[in-house]
Simulated assay, not measured.
Amino acid sequence: MPNKLTLKQLKQQLAAIEDPTDSLLSALKSDDRVGVQKLLQQWHTTYDQKCAREERFRHMRHYEGHYLNKGATKIVGVDEVGRGPLAGPVVVAAVALPGDIVDVGLDDSKRLSHSKRAELVNWIKKEAIAYKIVAKDSKVIDHYNILEATRMAMTEAVMAIADDQTVVLTDAMKLPISLKQIDLIKGDQRSVSIAAASILAKEYRDGLMKEYAELYPHYDFQHNMGYGTKKHLQGLSLYGATPIHRLSFSPVMTSVQSLRSNKGIK
């Protein structure tokens, strides 16, 4: 009988249960020990969380499964990181995952810790059918504008790994290609392929910005990744723009003009 088992014994037995209709769970409801009721509550909480993760994973695999079943040879998810910063490149990744992918915790890169992203980068590079990372630097961004530079990078990344029967999933970005495209708002939260792309792109770009932090130590790139934080703007006002700054972005342009004015340069 359950009430004759110790809490340690019950904990071990509960750990092996996966079915919420298991007879032990029903029997424990009438056990008046406080510790038993806590163990029972913990089991149900863990089970509910597991069900929620599984449901979310099924949802994030919907588009991949749907189009593979319709005959697509591969599904390519594409995403970018770095459209908003004042410095550094915009980085795009395109990823094609296998159809039998398991749940490894793929999610919007912004929702994950650096250590989890690093773990997933290794998994993606090992398990993906194909992937491609493309960066467009500040010169390209200044010449074409950030939207077009991003679109160029996405197109290049996708076409590097796509074939004629590929379906492309984008995070609300229409590309100038003939392949079938599905544009998903908040796609990195709705597609495992786009999530994988966002993770690759972010980890790659963050690594670049940490390298740039050593070359240009006055802008705190290792913490702000090129975004316009207070320390970054202070660095701009004191030292001006570096070769990786986007001169077409207003705060950078204003800083350069201000330094020139202070030095009497027209």
Rank of each mutant, 00 (worst) to 15 (best):
V91W: 01
A118P: 00
K210R: 15
A149C: 05
D19M: 01
H223E: 03
T170H: 07
R33K: 09
Q49R: 15
Q49T: 13
R56S: 06
Y219Q: 04
A72V: 12
I101P: 00
A157F: 13
E55H: 05
A153P: 13
A162I: 06
L208I: 15
V102P: 00
E54W: 02
L208M: 15
V36Y: 05
E156L: 06
A135M: 11
Y131Q: 08
K230E: 09
M152A: 03
S250G: 02
Q181C: 12
I177K: 08
G65S: 12
A87Q: 03
I141T: 05
A153G: 10
K263L: 15
D183P: 08
A153Y: 09
T46S: 11
K11P: 03
G99V: 07
V256R: 04
C51N: 14
K210T: 12
G105Q: 06
K202T: 07
G71V: 12
A157W: 11
T229M: 05
A196P: 09
I185S: 06
A241W: 03
A201T: 07
A130W: 11
D164W: 03
G35H: 00
K231G: 01
S191W: 13
H62L: 13
R58K: 13
K110P: 03
L215A: 08
I244G: 04
I199P: 08
L10H: 05
I75M: 09
P85M: 02
I124A: 04
K174M: 07
K230S: 03
S258K: 15
Q181P: 14
V34H: 04
L39E: 12
L184C: 07
K180I: 14
G207M: 08
Q181T: 10
A94G: 02
V158S: 06
I161G: 02
T166N: 07
V102Q: 15
D107S: 09
R260V: 02
I75V: 15
Q37G: 07
A153M: 08
I161H: 04
V192L: 14
G207Q: 14
K8R: 09
T170D: 04
Y63N: 06
H114G: 00
E156R: 12
Q9K: 04
Q181F: 13
E119H: 08
D108N: 07
P243N: 02
G88Q: 08
H66F: 14
L106N: 10
N69A: 15
G35N: 01
A16P: 05
N122V: 14
E148T: 14
E80N: 01
E80F: 04
S255T: 06
M253G: 00
T155E: 14
M173R: 14
T73N: 01
G264I: 14
K74F: 01
M154Q: 12
V104C: 10
Q222T: 06
D79G: 10
L147D: 07
H232V: 11
I177A: 10
Y144S: 09
L184P: 10
I194H: 01
D100F: 00
E148K: 15
S250Q: 14
E214Y: 00
E211L: 13
Y47T: 02
I75E: 06
Q49S: 09
R83L: 13
Q165W: 02
L120N: 07
